[in-house]
Each structure stands twice: as C-alpha cells, then as structure tokens.
Amino acid sequence: MGKVFTLAEVAEHNTPKDCWLVIDGKVYDVTKFLEDHPGGDEVLLSATGKDATDDFEDVGHSSSARVQMEELYVGDIDSSTIPSKSKYTPPKQPHYNQDKTSEFIVKLLQFLVPLIILGVAVGVRFYTKSSA
C-alpha cells in the first residue's frame, strides 16, 4: 500500500506537466503517459480532481491498459474525501391509467373512422365521374 492522498491533494496535479488521476480508489501519476494515451491528453486532464473510475470503466480499457496502470501507481485515495455518489431516483410520475388510454383511443377512432369513410366515398365518386 502506498501513500494516502486526499482528493484535494490529487486535484492539485492537473496540468500536462503534472497529471494525477483517481481510479478505483488508487492514485496514478499519468503525466508520462499523456502523449501516448490513445484518447488524447485532454481526456486525462479533464478527469483530474474527481473520481475518474466511471469514466475509465465506460471506455472499456483492455487488460494490457490495466497492467500498464500498475507502473503509474503512486498511492491510495482517502475515500472520505471523495463525495459519495447519490443513487439514481426516477422522477415521480403519475400512475399509468389504462382506462384513460383506452378511452382516448376509442374517441380518436370515433373521429377518424367516419373521416376515412367520407374520404373513400369522395374518392370513389370522383374516380367514377372522371372515368365516365
């Protein structure tokens, strides 16, 4: 186990000449890797000062990338300095009422069916007049 850093200490390392990241509770000095990173240095620089675990996992890094990270390890993060992630709570929505939906569909059909019949009747009448 390496040195333990606070998130504030890690966040101070946020330049192309000194760049540290927090991934899975560990601190990595990625400064030497900035130029070689396939996603570009901007991606790494934008991940400083926060827990970059989700960003790292979302990309789907290879096992060789994970092995390479071990060489960049400088310590652990003091987990009490990282804000906890809040659990997603879906917004409150009115209960879906099947009866109201059925009622709407019936009223819509009561309106559209006569219009379709009228349109077909006019079309047939127009067609038979123009054919004669």
Rank of each mutant, 00 (worst) to 15 (best):
G2M: 03
K3Q: 01
K3C: 02
K3S: 06
T6V: 07
V10I: 14
A11K: 02
E12D: 05
H13M: 01
N14Y: 06
T15K: 11
K17Y: 11
W20E: 01
V22A: 03
I23Y: 06
I23L: 07
D24H: 12
K26L: 13
D29K: 03
V30F: 10
V30S: 01
T31S: 02
F33D: 02
P38S: 04
G39D: 02
G40E: 05
D41H: 15
E42A: 14
V43F: 14
L44F: 11
L45V: 10
L45I: 13
S46H: 03
S46M: 06
A47W: 11
T48N: 01
G49S: 08
D51W: 11
T53E: 01
D55A: 09
F56P: 02
F56V: 05
E57H: 10
E57V: 07
D58Y: 12
G60E: 00
H61C: 10
H61W: 12
H61F: 13
S63K: 14
S64W: 11
R66Q: 15
V67P: 02
V67D: 07
V67Y: 15
V67I: 15
Q68L: 14
M69D: 00
E70H: 06
E71Y: 14
L72M: 10
V74L: 03
V74Q: 01
V74N: 06
I77L: 04
S79N: 09
S79A: 10
S79L: 11
S80I: 06
T81P: 06
I82Q: 00
S84E: 10
K87E: 11
K87V: 10
Y88W: 12
P90W: 13
Y96K: 07
N97L: 07
N97I: 07
K100R: 10
K100M: 12
T101C: 04
T101S: 08
S102T: 09
S102I: 14
I105C: 08
I105P: 00
I105Y: 14
V106M: 06
K107Y: 14
L108P: 01
L108F: 15
L109R: 14
L109G: 11
L109C: 09
Q110F: 12
F111R: 06
L112G: 15
L112N: 07
I116Y: 15
I116C: 12
I117S: 11
L118Y: 09
G119F: 09
V120Q: 06
A121H: 11
A121P: 03
A121F: 14
A121D: 00
G123I: 04
G123Q: 03
G123P: 00
G123L: 13
R125L: 14
R125D: 02
Y127K: 05
T128N: 05
T128M: 07
T128H: 08
K129S: 08
S130G: 03
A132L: 08
